[in-house]
């Protein structure tokens, strides 16, 4: 017996997404910014799963599978780039990455 409306889950997802977006904009540590991207992806996954149950359709859950695969690939590449940046700059602050800015 499920009684909660769909909008509660959507509002939880929206809250998590906005928190992740704010963290991405406000934090200067590149690794923490990456973690905030993961938070945003999780919020989107929650929306997919809530709508999947609402429509009684598997497609949303299959798409969550794909989002997790993309998140794994993104985390691997992104952390490799951060390791490389640390090797050159000895810092992971995003303000230090100014090579392409001039």
């Amino acid at each position: 017996m499920l009684s909660l409306p769909l909008s509660w889950y959507l509002m939880l997802s929206a809250t998590l997404f906005v928190m992740g977006a704010l963290g991405l904009l406000l934090r200067r540590n590149a690794i923490v910014a990456f973690m905030c991207v993961e938070v945003m992806l999780n919020a989107v996954n929650l929306t997919f799963i809530a709508f999947s149950k609402y429509h009684q359709d598997y497609t949303g859950q299959v798409f969550v599978f794909m989002v997790i695969a993309v998140a794994a690939a993104e985390a691997g590449i992104g952390l490799a780039m951060i390791v490389n940046m640390f090797r050159h700059k000895h810092s992971v602050q995003v303000d230090e990455a100014t090579l392409l800015r001039h």
Partner: peptide
Amino acid sequence: AILSTLGVL
């Protein structure tokens, strides 16, 4: 989930 995400931020 919201409180622990606040901890992340």
